[in-house]
């Protein structure tokens, strides 16, 4: 069936720049995502949506009941020629404006199966892709990085431009950040108003702050709170191998990358030499 090409109404086209900026801002931080999980990469997508990486903090909402309610499709996994028509069809069911992230080597280009008789050599052969995330499988941080990139793209775009090629950009694209994706691996942070950790780190902080409050959690029995609470939330235990203390009183509580990049994050996973 021939559908009319997607377009935008006059209100949106003629809206002044600040309004467009606000519209883009709203679209950017409420991306209802539809996961087209086809193979192993889907597991990493699920990991990204779960509590440790938690892309809802970036405004990506993984509860779209179906493609008709979604703004963003993440194709994660191996697209086979048999599956390709279904991918295309579900993409076409999504309402405009819609975005696609191709997640993993398989959906980027065929990946390990690039010479297979049945694997589509990249999902961009059937649908337009906005952001490619490389890896086999990419780590959840890589997907977070891709999402941040897509949001920057949305912030800079003009819908008139997207559909007719006549619009003017709402804002220049933000300059590239001099940060690596590992900044997204920032461990869970304690609340900023907590007491700076002293040598007496054995006592849980919340007990010091408000003894006797009714919402007091039960103090753990025995010697359990020997480790500092900060160390318990470190995802990579090997970080402490250099002997550096992991307690940081002046941490950056923001979860959005780009404000402070301290040494710790970039040290993770690298040799300490």
């Amino acid at each position: 069936m021939d559908l009319p090409p997607p377009g935008i109404g006059p209100l949106s086209r003629l809206a002044p720049k600040p309004i467009k900026f606000v519209l883009n801002w709203g679209r950017r931080y409420s991306l209802w995502v539809f996961n087209f999980g086809l193979a192993c990469c889907a597991i990493e997508f699920i990991a990204t949506s779960m509590s440790r990486h938690d892309f809802i903090r970036l405004g990506v909402i993984p509860f779209a009941p179906g493609p008709r309610q979604a703004d963003l499709m993440v194709v994660s996994g191996t697209v086979s020629d048999k599956m390709a028509p279904a991918v295309r069809r579900l993409y076409e069911q999504m309402p405009e404006p819609k975005y696609v992230i191709s997640f993993g080597a398989c959906s980027n280009c065929g990946g390990p199966y690039w010479d297979s008789y049945c694997v589509t050599k990249g999902v961009d052969q059937i649908i337009p892709v906005d952001v490619y995330v490389p890896g086999c499988p990419p780590r959840p941080e890589a997907l977070l990085h891709g999402i941040v990139h897509l949001q920057e793209k949305i912030a800079a775009e003009s819908l008139g431009d997207r559909y007719t090629g006549t619009g003017e950009p709402v804002a220049p694209p933000p300059p590239p950040r001099p940060l690596s994706a590992t900044v997204l691996r920032r461990p869970i942070q304690p609340p900023p108003e907590a007491e700076p950790l002293s040598t007496e780190a054995a006592t849980p902080l919340v007990l010091d702050a408000a003894p006797g409050a009714s919402t007091q959690p039960m103090p753990p029995a025995g010697d359990a709170p020997q480790a500092s609470p900060n160390a318990a939330t470190q995802p990579v235990p090997g970080t402490d191998a250099s002997g550096r203390s992991t307690t940081r009183g002046d941490h950056d509580p923001s979860i959005i990358p780009g404000l402070v990049d301290d040494e710790d994050d970039d040290q993770i996973g690298r040799s300490s030499s």
Partner: peptide, 8 residues
């Protein structure tokens, strides 16, 4: 595919 596409 090995003929048509270089190793990516």
């Amino acid at each position: 595919a090995r003929v048509a596409k270089p190793w990516p």
